[in-house]
Structure formats: structure tokens, C-alpha cells
Design a protein around this nucleic acid. Sequence first.
DNA 1: CGTGTGGTTGAACAATGTCAAGCTCTGTGG
DNA 2: CCACAGAGCTTGACATTGTTCAACCACACG
Lengths: 250, 250
Amino acid sequence: MASAAAMHGQRTSCQECPLRSLPSFREFERDELSFISRFKKGELLVDAGATIFLEGAHSAHLFTILSGWGFRYKTLEDGRRQILNYVMPGDLIGLQGSIMGEMQHSTEALSPISLCVFERAELMTLYNSHPSLAFDLTWIAAREERILDEHLLSIGRRSAIERAAYLIAYLYQRASGLHLFNGSKVIPITQQHVADTLGLSVVHTNKTLKKLAERGLIAWQERGCKVLDAQKLAEVADWGGLDSGSRPFI
Amino acid sequence: MASAAAMHGQRTSCQECPLRSLPSFREFERDELSFISRFKKGELLVDAGATIFLEGAHSAHLFTILSGWGFRYKTLEDGRRQILNYVMPGDLIGLQGSIMGEMQHSTEALSPISLCVFERAELMTLYNSHPSLAFDLTWIAAREERILDEHLLSIGRRSAIERAAYLIAYLYQRASGLHLFNGSKVIPITQQHVADTLGLSVVHTNKTLKKLAERGLIAWQERGCKVLDAQKLAEVADWGGLDSGSRPFI
DNA sequence: CGTGTGGTTGAACAATGTCAAGCTCTGTGG
DNA sequence: CCACAGAGCTTGACATTGTTCAACCACACG
């Protein structure tokens, strides 16, 4: 597993953070922004395939994804893996571990990722000095919870084809809101990732994706899934879509 | 669906809150306690089977469970139901809705429940005046997230018998920490609840529970599941157990 | 050119769902 | 006190879904 990682002080200033201009995210007050600038200690670059957090670790840092795709997962003793959720630009990762101690899941990069680095030890300062940002952190945690609720509904009660349709519609909608596609509409995952997210075997996943392809909703490409009809995917899954308002990030 | 609910100002004072003496929960500072006393607007009693929150609602309140059992769930259009998690004394419910707007899941009482009532509108005051309690709210949300992670692993990757063993061990461990059993060790759920939590049909759930009973790990009783060997249940599921330290509540 | 990763396929098999019936309580109304 | 209805549990036969195994293919990369 390649896991080269480069830390460097050189950095995008928070004032010029490319995420700020996305309509998905809320605006900052001036003092919030200056606090975050000080809170940010640098940037980290990791390769595709690298592990950012490993289950069981106690990390001194937490990160916000600046660019790239990744995923969180847990495994059983015998190696069975469950992907819990995907991470994309604007997502804060490592909060669970920062607040409660040890990490109980791992996080891996799906593409090269750049991260803003924050220090866990300074989290309490944030709570003390910026109540609005503290509220945002709870918001971020509540949002993740809400997404996990939907995933649970999906894995527990949707059929294989519905699950697959939901997953792709979900990833597409999130990534679209972040302008992550340059017209390509290709989600950079393998069928193994899809299988491990849906709780299915790769073989069955392959056959299921083929059905979606036959219906003209997706096409499978070199290293990824091309979304052809996001609307119909959501319909197949009986999924209402993500919250539409703008959300906080840090 | 019976949904009688009685609100009354009469209340257990927070100073004498029975939950405070449980080792599962952390101690409060004096000023935290006095703030919470003011934050609490009264108590609510609901019958078994009553709906506390309904998906789609905008509630002006959030609650902490004082006594009783309940569960959170989501449904698909055609009626398929997925139970997301169970709620027990000390659990804060409605935080997701309070922070992000509309409820996206429903909550139902499994037994008669008493609740402490808080006003959503005063949440921001908490963030402004009590950073330590704000931190606790994030903690509470992060804890729920962690539990959902484990549930996702369970439904996605564990076999029927492992899932059932995990669920019962999980409920048993939580309830034990809250001294919810008076020596009975009986979890008050039906097999339909188990099925809807595990993502299985009732019939298959029945057969699976029978296997656990044959192994001497549980016994099914009038309206509930008697836990005979919590240790072995956790082993069957390859589950490490809940976090052991004391946690915050409000 | 090999080699590895990811995708595709078919066949045999295992896990789980569906249908249908019956059973045992418990509570209710006559 | 009895009859009945409903909820929850149990069981067997059968259908469907999903898994495992074992190939084989295609392409990218060294």
C-alpha cells in the first residue's frame, strides 16, 4: 500500500480557500475566518490508496479535505470490510477520534488528497472562543449521522439494485454540489468499493451494475462509474436526495 | 396507535436526577447543572407504542430520555422499515432536527417513557454561555455516529446469526450500564423489532433467534429477549463492546 | 512482453425471503 | 364465564437472492 505523505507549511490561505466560493457552503464572519486561519496548522498531501487514519489510532490531528476523494471503513477480524461513508472536499475527518479518544474506523484516500491540518489540542479553544463554530461542529456531526441513517436504511431494506442506484445517486449529488466533475460525471471507485459499501459480493455487485447499465442509467468505465441519469437512479432507489441548503464547514 | 402524552410542569429536579448517580455518566460542574435546570422546561410522559417524533416534522423541542425504552426508524414509500438505533435513559433525542431543521426519522416508544423537555430556541444560548456543554453536545452526536458505524458494519457484513448476537449483546450492554434490568435481563422488544433492526424478515429472524436459544445464549419470553450469556454473544458477533469510560449527557 | 489489478461470466450452492397455516397467549365484549 | 379477535411466535415448503468458486479477459504499467 503506497502511503507517501508530504506535510508542508506552504498553504492556501483560508481567505482564498477555494471551497468558500461553492454555494454548498455557508459564509464565514470575519472573526470566524481569522480564527480558522490560526487554527489551521498546514497542509498535508497523500497519495491515492494511502491510509489517513487507522482504526485504533490516537491522532493528534484532525483534517478538512481540501481536494480529492476518500472513504471511511471498518473491518471484522476475518477481513470482511464495510465502507461506512465517502469523504469529499469540505468534510471534516477525525472529529470522532478527537472528541472521544481512539479512532474506531479507518480512512483511506481514493485519489490524491490534500488536507488542512488542525490540532486536536486546540479544539477546546474553539469551543471557548467561538460558539458559532462550536455549533457548526455539532452540525457537521449531526449531518454525518443523518447520512448514516440513510445508508442504514439502504443496506437494511433496499434490494441490491436499489442500493446500487442509491449509492451512485448519492455520490453523484454530493460531488456535483462540490463541482468535482469537470463535465466527466465519473465517480472514481472500483466495483470492489461499491460491493463493500452495499454489503454485497463483488460478483453480485458486477451483475447488479450491469443491470443499471442496461437500463441506461450508468456506464462503467476505466476506474469509475459514469453517471448517465441521476434523476432516475434516485427514483429507482426511492431516495429523496440530500438536504439542499448551504452547510457549515471548517 | 395509542399516542396519549401528558405534559406536566411537575418534575424531578436536575439536582436529584436519578441518572446522575449512574457510573456511565460524567459529573456536572455546579454552574452546568444550574444552567441545565433552567434549560429544562418540564417533563413529558408517553405511552408504549406512542410516536415521539415523526419523520418530516419540525419540532420546537428536544428531549432527554429519563426512563423507558424506544427506537428511531426510517421507512421507504412501500412500508419497508429500518430501525436505526434504540434510545434509553440519558439519550438526547431530536438534536438532528433541532440543528438542521426537519426530522428525517421517526422515534417511537417501546415502553412507557418519561422525557425531560428542552426548547430548541434556547440551544444557541447553551453554545454561547457554556462551551463545555456545547462540547458535550458534539460528543453526544459523535457517539451516535460511532454506534451507527458499528450497526452499518453489522448489517453490511455480518451473517444473520452474528447480527442477531451483536444486537442483543449491544442492547444488553447499554441497558446494563444504566441499571435497566432488575435482575430480569429481559430486553422488551418483539421479533419484528429485531427483524427490522437487522434487515431480515421476521421468519428468518425467528429461525436465527432459535439457533441462539439452542446454543443457550438467549431465551425468548413473553414480549422480550432474556439474555443468558452476553459474553458469548459478543464473541459470536466478533464485537469488542461499547466504550467503557463515562460519557456526558444533558 | 510478463504481471497485476479490475472487470465479466457461468454453474453450483448457501442464505434468506415469501407464503401459508397453525399455535398460544391476552384482552374484550356479550 | 365464554367466545372471539388480534398480536406475536413457530413451522414447513418453496422461490428468490446472493455467494463462492473458477475461469477468462482486457488493459495499464514496469
